[in-house]
């Protein structure tokens, strides 16, 4: 007789099949750590920016520019 599988185990088995294969998880971890470090380096605060509230980003500036035209 097959033991009834717990819901959490079913989810884990599902992930095993589609997301985690072999040593891939470890490899991705190193990529994401470096990628995040690059991103944070690029995001070094500009002392001229008021960090207390809303800040315009290139995306938002571009959006408002297009809305004005």
């Amino acid at each position: 007789m097959k033991a009834k599988q717990l819901p959490g185990e079913a989810r884990r088995d599902f992930l095993k099949g589609v997301v985690a294969a072999g040593g891939s998880a470890v490899l991705l971890t190193s990529i994401t750590q470096v990628a995040q470090a690059e991103h944070w380096d690029a995001g070094t605060p500009d002392s001229s920016v008021d960090s207390r509230g809303y800040q315009e980003t290139p995306h938002v500036r571009a959006y408002y520019a297009s809305a004005r035209s």
């Binding site: 992930l15 997301v19 991705l28 971890t29 990529i31 994401t32 990628a35 690059e38 991103h39």
Partner: peptide, 29 residues
Amino acid sequence: SIEEQSRADVYRLLGALLAAAPGEEVLSL
């Protein structure tokens, strides 16, 4: 678990690639 870690890694990979264009090190990886 390693499976949950893998989910998190995919989110973080997507997040990192969409936050800014990849630099030399990320592209190489």
